[in-house]
Design a protein around this nucleic acid. Structure first.
Lengths: 141, 141
DNA sequence: CTAACTGCAAAGCGTTTGCGATGAG
DNA sequence: CTCATCGCAAACGCTTTGCAGTTAG
């Protein structure tokens, strides 16, 4: 069984939540996506494995997975929430505004700086969000 | 007349758009807000000056002001768009997740770093968004 | 068994839009 | 005058929810 499903099962056992077929399919669907799908995309992909899954269950399961810390939500400004698996390697996103492509990146210096800034303001950083909207350097203006 | 209204009038003249009483009231309302109001808050505050302004006009005017580059939109994750005047001094936002307070800050090092990161990835930075979600350092966990 | 979960359809909520009336230029 | 804009109410798109039937534990 995949690691992700195991993670879900652990969470369910610890929280008196039932582990259902639909839930397994939905986590796996997200785990198998290497883009940043929105709810409808997850729904469509999940239906390939179980055609009778409903959009309501997809929404409910995604909310649950978010609370479980298994997936995280992003909002890239197109009006819908997008999701991806939480992994150990934190990264931020660069959005190519011409193609919509999303490039993940990690910058050590940036991570340190964010903490430093929060600290300077008298806060302790809990979470953050950085998105760079950009165009390819080679692109003609 | 306020600078902001003048800015709006310039934009209108250059774009064959009419400058109406409602539009003036709405820019001024936003200019007078030193928080980051959502559309409904702008609407309510605008109504104090003209009780018959409609929410539709508020939405339409806010969209126009955004296109004019007079105001900018933010999304702090509470499901509604928030707005503030565009000023020369760029800043990012730190959100106190306990109180909802929004602190504006500017960090030179960060600005440089963002450009550098985009450049390293082969992109030219067009826009960006950084939000820090944090709690007061003195707060007990 | 029985509380949690599902699918369905209806409702919720922020936002947009079609319309006939109004008003700026 | 004429076209842009207004207020109203209906529609929209994403998301949530009440309900009656189903299922995991």
């Amino acid at each position: 069984m995949s690691d992700i499903v195991k993670k879900l099962e652990d969470y369910c056992k610890n929280n008196n939540i039932k582990i259902t077929e639909q839930r397994k399919i939905i986590v796996e669907t997200i785990a198998d996506s290497n883009d940043h799908p929105d709810v409808e995309q997850v729904f469509i992909r999940a239906k390939e494995h179980d055609s009778k899954i409903s959009i309501a269950t997809t929404y409910r399961t995604i909310k649950l997975l978010e609370e479980a810390g298994i997936i995280e939500k992003h909002d890239f400004g197109d009006g819908k929430s997008r999701y991806e698996l939480v992994t150990d390697d934190h990264h931020d996103h660069l959005i190519d505004i011409q193609t919509g492509d999303i490039i993940e990146f990690y910058d050590e210096e940036l991570e340190k700086l964010k903490d430093k800034i929060a600290d300077k303001l008298g806060f302790k950083l809990v979470d953050h969000r950085l998105e760079l909207y950009a165009i390819k350097s080679s692109s003609k203006k």
